[in-house]
Design a protein around this nucleic acid. Structure first.
Length: 477
RNA sequence: GUCCCGUUCGUCUAGUGGCUAGGACUCAGGAUUUUCAUUCCUGCAACAGGGGUUCAACUCCCCUACGGGAUACCA
């Protein structure tokens, strides 16, 4: 028996990677890397009714985009495969049979309609809506008869009816449930597929999972899971139930209230570095005040002991701040590559790489997301348009004098740099009397399209003198 | 309804019996900048309430309130 640390991320392929799932996967990854353990990816595709075309591919792609590499799972294989639950159905059936043989599970012939009706009745009486256990009492003969008649059935777990189950969660410590509040969970559906509860327990054991890191929504199912471990005689894993990620109104983060898919955030121009860093801090925090971490640094710092108990609101404003930080600090070349798709959409010509990178360096200083880049860069790529108010400023005599002076002198500049442009600016003041805002605003407006913006040297450096003269010519009357 | 979990600034959080309750985001003000943005500085802002325990409670216990999760042949 090895004491190797093995964790798994076990998403059901619903079509996209939810950020809550992303965080679970991240913690799995961090814990595995931190401890030298293994990070397993297992696809929980046991619900045929919820099959979504391309969902797994999408999941894998999202994981790859944020850099969370797993050691075992789809596409990379491993010694404990297959890693798709839909390919392991015989395993679950065999284990369900064992449970039945051990009298820890039974066949239930109630139809979905009957169950719904039972629940309605219980509700009407103000009782708990739990399976009333009528098939639990079926004799062997009765069961055989129903089977012989071809009645379809499910297999239910036969949980204890009295007593208490106590277990320890690494985040919440001691947790206790009265068995009487635990339902006889369906383990095998009538279509022969297992439910999460059975498949999860069987696979976690068979795959040697040592630590189960999952969302808090599973906490109340844990007694059922532990019961199965006990019947099978297996050693249960350590439990780590993560607090939920919340909407601003504190409900469980949902699609209705905004983006929840990892790919959506990526598409909106958030960098993987920012998303990972931000999500890591939703439920975990180091003992220091430090908040900025690369993935590798998170691996160094991560510890299950510092996981939080309470849910955390996903604050998009802080994500934006963090994203703008990474936009400013990561290498220009990298940001340029990341920004390229957003420019491609607008159809502007970014083939001049030197110019493009200069523009990236300009945009990264003022954007919160990559998606904002094209708009910021617009003055460098497309023809200028002026508002009525701006047109008035262009018409002013002082402005016109400045433009004319520049048409004459700008071509004389050999090299565009702070010194040469400042010298020209000084000459302009001497020749026209324009200074301060009367000097800078018209000029910036004429060649950049806005009175606000970067320094003239930067604008001229990026556009080139020819382009500036062209624009100047257009505003001279 | 029932069961389970949780509760420090608006938000993310530090804090494990003695602190002027710290940091970050947001917001406000200021400095720098020809302007905008950046950057920097300053400020606003919290221990859910009530009982205990203790010389001493944000920290430990109980109750209440509030929030959330689970109550499926979904995960």
């Amino acid at each position: 028996m090895s004491s190797e640390i093995r964790v798994r991320f076990a998403p059901s392929p619903t079509g996209y990677l939810h950020v809550g799932g992303l965080r679970t996967a991240l913690y799995d990854y961090l814990y595995a890397r931190k401890t030298g353990g293994k990070f397993v990816l297992r696809i929980e595709d046991t619900d045929q009714a919820r099959y979504v075309e391309g969902a797994v591919e999408n999941l894998l792609k999202s994981l790859k985009m944020v850099g969370l590499e797993y050691d075992e799972g789809p596409e990379v294989g491993g010694d404990f495969g297959p890693y798709y639950q839909s390919q392991r159905t015989e395993l679950y059936l065999a284990h369900a049979r064992e449970l039945v043989d051990q009298d820890a599970a039974y066949r239930c012939f109630c139809t979905p309609e009957e169950l719904t009706q039972q629940r309605e009745e219980q509700k009407a009486l103000g009782l708990d809506t739990r399976y009333d256990g009528r098939c639990r009492k079926l004799t062997k003969e009765e069961t055989e008869t129903k089977l012989a008649n071809g009645n379809t059935f499910t297999i239910r777990l036969k949980v204890p009816r009295e007593g208490e189950i106590v277990f320890f969660d690494l985040v919440r410590d001691r947790i206790a449930f009265q068995w009487e509040t635990v339902d006889d969970q369906v383990l095998i559906k009538s279509d022969g597929f297992p439910t999460y509860h059975l498949a999860n327990v069987v696979d976690d054991h068979l795959m040697g999972i040592s630590h189960v890191i999952r969302g808090e929504e599973w906490l109340s199912s844990t007694p059922k899971h532990i019961f199965m471990y006990q019947i099978f005689g297996w050693k249960p894993p350590k439990w780590i139930h993560l607090p939920l990620i919340l909407n601003p109104d504190k409900s469980k983060l949902s699609k209705r209230q905004g983006d929840v898919a990892t790919e959506d955030f990526l598409k909106k121009g958030f960098l993987p570095e920012a998303l990972i860093n931000f999500i890591a801090l939703l439920g975990w925090h180091s003992a220091s005040d430090r908040e900025l971490y690369t993935l590798d640094e998170l691996v160094q710092e991560f510890s299950l002991k510092r996981l939080n108990k309470s849910g955390s609101v996903f604050d998009i404003e802080k994500l934006k701040w963090m994203n703008s930080h990474y936009l400013k600090t990561l290498e220009t070349g990298y940001i340029a590559i990341k920004a390229t798709p957003y420019f491609k959409e607008t159809g502007v010509d970014i083939s001049d790489r030197e110019k493009f990178e200069q523009i990236i360096d300009f945009a990264r200083e003022r954007a919160a997301t990559l998606a904002e880049f094209p708009e910021l860069a617009k003055p460098f790529y497309t023809e200028l348009e002026f508002s009525e108010e701006n047109n008035e400023l262009l018409e002013v005599e002082m402005s016109q004098n400045v433009f004319k002076f520049w048409m004459e002198k700008l071509p004389e500049i050999i090299e565009v740099n702070v010194a040469s442009i400042n010298a020209l600016l000084n000459q302009t003041t001497e020749a026209t009397g324009a200074k301060g805002k009367d000097l800078y605003f018209p000029l910036r407006l004429a060649i950049f399209g806005s009175i606000h913006g970067p320094e003239l040297t930067m604008i001229i450096g990026i556009l080139g003198i020819e382009k500036c003269l062209e624009r100047l010519k257009k505003v001279i009357r």
